[in-house]
Nucleic acid binder design. Structure first.
Lengths: 192, 192
DNA sequence: CTTCGATGTATCGAGGCGATATATTGGTGC
DNA sequence: GCACCAATATATCGCCTCGATACATCGAAG
């Protein structure tokens, strides 16, 4: 019943799109895929898997291990596979280009699975993200203008760095938008 | 009893060092001071104030409002003042230049109150922070080297950006260290 | 004189995370 | 063969944090 964090949902379903996997590997890949942005913990992953299972968005894949022990008993290693409903739900979640998709948390996952989206949806998300970041930049900018002189040099320096980071992020998104617009098609089909 | 997040502690005590204040304003200033790094919520602030009070690190300042209603009854606006123990504890927390002070969470607050520290302590914290960031950068770098070619261009782009951010952060700290070493004394005493 | 947004205190529930318990597996040295 | 250790793997628990919200008061605009 728990409306799980949709970040985990999206991320898990997205990875399972590339083939069945068990929890441990899921987490590892998650931290490779999105590690520069945030961390993924077991404490959230396993409960989320349980929910997805209950909702029928994923299912257990039989012990299809290559020739390995068909021996009963010992269960360890639960391999999950995405279901048809799961794929549908994934597409639906990922395709949402609304405001929530330009917040920090969701934007990262969306971007990580951009290859599954049409160019126009990608553009809408990127543009939303950009305006979101511009807001933040303006906030920091005006904050800094207002408080300048009233703060010691360390605090000022920190805010200066913050502003620069915000500006840089906007620039980055802008480049991505530009590339996307000029029909920068991914070389071939991304096989992976 | 709750060993409150030490980030809130440090931040609250630090602000109260500049004069008595009530919760609402505390939060506002916190979000000005450290807003580029993180957000501060009432849900953590008020319980923390309660703890600090219980530990005797802060105390209620009487309604010393200028001539304002000495009228009894109505209580609203609770002004807090830092105690002698509080100042001591603050100095002790802030002066800790150990590993925890170079993690993301704590480094920010420490830096925000750098003006209260001696140059050598500042240097130790900055150097610790730098090595912490270098570790992270190397992690990202090797990750990227290992997975390059196996990831689609969006994921690659995200990791490239992540690496650049990590490199940039190291550069920033290095500059701060350089400034600190070359006896870049804050002009006069920071009066604020 | 009322309405509205800012000021102000406070709490609650939902959920995320780190740490940890517990096995099993797979190598490496001997 | 086997002793040992690290990596693989599942799962949970409690702590803490946060966003939302409730509930007041106040000043200024209209």
């Amino acid at each position: 019943m728990g409306t799980r964090s949709s970040v985990y949902m999206l991320a898990i379903l997205g990875l399972l799109t590339d083939g069945p996997m068990h929890g441990y590997e899921l987490r590892k890949r998650l931290n490779v895929l999105l590690g520069t942005l945030r961390a993924f913990s077991y404490g959230s992953l396993y409960p989320c898997l349980r929910d997805l299972l209950a909702q029928g968005l994923i299912e257990e894949a039989g012990p299809a291990d290559a020739g390995a022990p068909a021996l009963s008993g010992k269960r360890a290693k639960i391999v999950y596979r995405i279901t048809a409903e799961g794929k549908e739900h994934f597409a639906q979640l990922l395709g949402n280009a609304g405001p929530s998709s330009w917040e920090d948390a969701e934007f990262g996952v969306h971007f990580a699975f951009f290859r599954h989206l049409d160019s126009d949806v990608r553009l809408r998300i990127l543009e939303g993200r950009r305006s979101r970041l511009e807001e933040r930049r303006e906030g920091v900018r005006s904050q800094l203008a207002r408080t300048r002189e009233r703060l010691d040099r360390y605090t000022q320096e920190m805010q200066r760095y913050g502003l620069e980071s915000a500006e840089r992020e906007v620039r980055w998104i802008s480049e991505l938008i530009h590339d996307e617009r000029s029909g920068n098609k991914p070389r071939h089909a991304p096989h992976n």
